[in-house]
Write a protein that binds this DNA or RNA. Structure first.
Lengths: 257, 257
DNA sequence: AAGTGGTCTAGACCACTCT
DNA sequence: GAGTGGTCTAGACCACTTA
């Protein structure tokens, strides 16, 4: 019986191992995994632990289960992000692209009203402001404006943002990014933005705004806006339907409420 | 000790109960829930079961946990959909709106190329086609075109789509919708669409395309496109960051791999 | 009937937070 | 130190699938 709690949790290790097998091609789409009882034996884990690993991989879209049949590797279409919070640049890199990042500004400035309200700070309070133009294959893809609250912001400003993504820096500084809210809208580009993106003024663009939190309670640490050229970008996600276990008022055996 | 497996699972019942307490106002944002051990006792459940219920509510954004402190009701901002697969009309109704649905067409026709390719059927195969214009407060909001594969499609066509949402009908027919993929893009409206939406030709619109599956394996059952007036709609989601338990090659105590 | 995933129990130790 | 969530074990029965 092994000692508890050294290193990372066992279920995380199992997840990693399975992901590796898939990444390396040992397991391909729709291949069955060993049964849960077999995995227990093979790695000396309890079924609960095995199921926690598999369960998370299912909810990440890496695997799927069929009652009575088995657990299988999901086809690529599902490996897509289930609405993961990923930095704008980070996302491109994960898809194997080599974005060219030009930093147009990186300063400390008083927060503009919109940013202040989203960050829940008084307008005019100092924030770090970073403006970047991201290009792929020599052609502009999107324009990004990021506002960071002071403590994190100052540290981020002192790094080389053409090489490291903002999220990577933030996390390296010890702020574990956890969640965010995102808004997408279609807009028409104003003159200045159109010029930077090298399209005609009035061209359509996908506007994405993100507010990022370290946890569910404390105020946000980042507010970012991005303008993507509509002709070069579309946003993709996977969606799950909440099995709404809905309004059957049948109490059944019930709990001793 | 209660009997197993009557009615819905115990953890689902617990979830329902907690959701009810929140909906009814007994529990408000940031209120602490009873501890897990206390919930065990109160309802005669094991800790595992309690944790499964709480865990799912956390991942749905209804609750949040703080190690060493407790479990709390998430503020409204988190109750937002975590990328839930919801019908276009359904979504509006859930937000308490009363959309006016005009059915522009509802017929059987050969699948156009785009729809056929998304639905993984040969182009020209018969599908149900439904075109609707949805308005709120007497003003058009979006235009929706839905293509359904034959078996489901025929049944859906025979219902009153101004009253019931397409997803509701599909599920009533015994096809439990599970997941989908979604693409968002910014576009410029062509003449015909602009006229229907009562905006100027060339106005920007948010284009949302959805492919819907009953499970991870079988081909999709629905392909839908919607064009939202950019001036009246934006798309919101909550995002979670995958705690990527990343590349620490520290094997720790490891598993007996 | 055998194998697989789905639900559940009872009990344990660890790590974090607060006082 | 007491309380809370986080991880883990060993073992059980149920429901579904396949043969």
């Amino acid at each position: 019986m092994p000692v508890h709690g050294a290193d990372s949790p066992l279920y995380v290790q199992l997840k990693r191992l399975i992901k590796l097998r898939i990444a390396s091609g040992q397991l391909k789409a729709h291949d069955p995994l060993p049964g849960e009882r077999q995995l227990m034996q093979a790695y000396g884990l309890s079924r609960t632990t095995v199921r926690q690993a598999l369960g998370e991989l299912v909810s990440e879209g890496v695997l799927y289960r069929r009652h009575g049949k088995g657990t299988f590797v999901a086809p690529r279409r599902l490996e897509q992000n289930l609405a993961t919070l990923t930095g704008f640049v980070e996302e491109l890199r994960e898809r194997g692209m080599r974005p060219l990042v030009q930093v147009l500004s990186a300063t400390v400035c008083p927060a503009p009203v919109e940013a202040a309200s989203q960050l829940q700070i008084p307008p005019g309070e100092e924030v770090a402001f970073i403006e970047r133009l991201i290009s792929i294959d020599g052609e502009p893809l999107f324009l990004d404006r990021t506002y960071l609250v002071a403590p994190v912001g100052l540290a981020v400003l002192s790094t080389d943002l053409t090489k490291e993504s903002i999220y990577a820096v933030i996390e390296r500084l010890g702020y574990p990014i956890r969640e965010g809210t995102q808004t997408l809208a279609a807009v028409r580009l104003a003159g200045a933005e159109a010029r930077l993106l090298r399209v005609r003024r009035g061209s359509p663009a996908l506007f994405i705004r993100r507010v990022t939190y370290v946890n569910a309670v404390s105020p946000p640490i980042e507010y970012a806006e991005a303008l993507y050229r509509a002709d070069r970008y579309q946003y993709q996600t996977r969606l799950l339907r909440h099995q709404n276990a809905s309004y059957s008022s049948v109490p059944g055996r019930g709990m001793n409420s």
